[in-house]
Amino acid sequence: MAAINTEFGKELKKYGAFDFNACYNCGNCTAVCSLSTEEDSFPREMVRFSVLGLEDDIRSSLKPWLCYYCGECSTHCPQEANPGELMMSLRRWLTTEYDWTKLSGLLYRSLPLTIIGFIIATLGVLVFSVLENFNLQSIMHIGHLFEIIAIAAVFGFILLPNIIRMWWMIILKPKIKVPLINYFTSFGELIIHMFTQKRSLGCDDNQLRWFEHFIIVIGYLGLLFTTVFLDWFSNDSLFVIVLGYVMSIIIFIVTIDFMSDRIKKQKEMSKYSQPSDWMFVVWLFLMGLTAFVVRLFIDTGLIEKNIWLYLFHLTILVQWALIIVPFGKWTHFLYRSFAMYFAKIKAV
């Protein structure tokens, strides 16, 4: 027996959900959703759980991650209850549930706290630069080291424990019996989804969206690989230099398109943007752009006189690595892939 908790709905509104109370349970949203299946029907069930405040059921559900927000459900909702935006909010809420530090919840709910976090990161870069006497060589060197360390730390101390928490909520706590072998047989699913998001191809809207996402994942991972492992800014190999250029161009071109959608608000999914959505796309754009310009300055020899440019890039990088990646929307990319993995494990 489950008790109704109307407070949950109010909490959820802080994560961007609105009007979902208007739902009169016709199921139209589920019916028009092309990703909804007999095994996994959504989003109405999630709307209903949210209205009634059935937190446990939501916490152990993978359905919010199965949605790729084409927006059909919201477009056709006869009560204009915005199930699509509710699903997005549930993803935000789940992210904070998985997060043992609870910092992501703070970021979603409070813009001022987010801004303070960004300022602290900026100040950190400034202090570090002062300590290094604005020596470009050593700053770039340490910047590169920082990247490696940050990735390892964020992954080891935050993301990995969070994924374990997610696993606990979805498989362990609801006492779902899964043979160990499934974890291995399903592993391919994780990789495929992480790199291709192929599930979103099932969405009704268009293949372009999937393609853009695919490109940006490639671009992002490519740039990450180029800068971190090939040390792009210090590498002289023509292949590496060009590779970095290509990857960074991809990122800022595609993000420009994403941002313009959010400004135009024509597509259902880009109608309601939360600060976290903006931050993700803007910082990604800035990463691509600044990396591109820094390398350009390096290649044209201008960087010595424009060390501020690298500092700006570094600030963006620090904010991205320490705030957006572990606590922001970046995690969706990770959790979504794991959600597919867990779903596969459960289903096998």
Binding site: M1, A2, A3, I4, N25, E45, R48, F49, L52, L54
Partner: peptide
């Protein structure tokens, strides 16, 4: 008050 709510797949719900 207890009810098997058909809008929640007949799950048993309760309200005080």
């Amino acid at each position: 008050i207890r009810i098997n709510d058909i809008l929640t797949a007949k799950k048993e719900m309760s309200v005080e």
